[in-house]
Design a protein around this nucleic acid. Structure first.
Lengths: 136, 136
DNA sequence: ATTCAGGTGCAAAACATTTGCATCTGAAGA
DNA sequence: TCTTCAGATGCAAATGTTTTGCACCTGAAT
């Protein structure tokens, strides 16, 4: 729904623009960690600049719409913050499998050991291995 | 002990060189995630090339001596694989606090949900927030 | 002492990401 | 509906990290 995405933007004080809606749409239709270049490819033909994508990703992350995901590669990957799950990543081919062991207790445990932090905003849990295909 | 580090290199089939020993020493004396540039600074005066550091980090990671750490910044950070702990990272100033909630059960949980992997080699658990200093 | 795969330095390239600046546009107010 | 302007965007260029090609060097096995 375009209404949902517009509302999401306005609720964090961002202007609703075609570029932003398009980028959010890519994230909605493709729910796995993606990078700027991928979005750029997907939006070829609708006249959007790669720089704008970088700026938008960064803005969205600040506003809590997107979450940075460590896929252990060259480029920065993001996914919708509302899709809170973790990833199993193949060191060989880079395939990503999503799992949902999200454990709120983790944050609590971590915080209880911390001396320098009062609260935790987010966490990132990624597993690395070699997938069955690459293993063969 | 230089013997330990030499042995570590040989055990994974790498030649023992002054550069590699020096790099390992930096990691031993400074046990937190560091990047190539930092090592380069530390080893100023002993005639080591930045390129060599990049190559060495990459080699060490492949061999399981180092582990890549997602500190959510520009450059790639690593730490000794044997130092297995996790990190609380400040989104503002980048300060890193180490914690030790390492939980082997995590791997088990993750694997039990996976269809594409037979085993997990390593995991990465990082927490993000704003530290007390930056909060003030 | 010889040999050679693997390690290193140097220069240059490749790549992801950021920045400066001019222009445009969403949306708030008249 | 029209005006206004902070914020959004495009373009070109810069920045910073990491990689690569190539010639030379060196550890360690024989």
């Amino acid at each position: 729904m375009k209404k949902d995405t517009s509302a999401k933007l306005m609720s964090v004080g961002l202007k609703v623009t075609p570029n932003r809606l398009a980028i959010l749409e890519v994230f909605s239709s493709d729910c796995r960690p993606i990078n700027a270049e991928y979005i750029f490819q997907k939006l070829q033909g609708q006249n959007i600049n790669l720089v704008t994508i970088y700026r938008t990703l960064s803005t969205f992350e600040e506003k809590g719409i997107l979450r940075f995901v460590n896929v252990h590669t060259d480029s920065a990957h993001y996914e919708l913050a509302e899709h809170h799950h973790h990833h199993l990543i193949c060191k060989d081919c880079g395939v990503i499998e999503e799992i949902s062991i999200c454990n709120k207790l983790l944050d609590k445990d971590a915080l209880s050991q911390s001396k320098k932090f009062n609260f935790i905003e987010s966490h990132s849990v990624e597993f690395f291995g070699v997938c069955k295909k690459c293993e063969a």
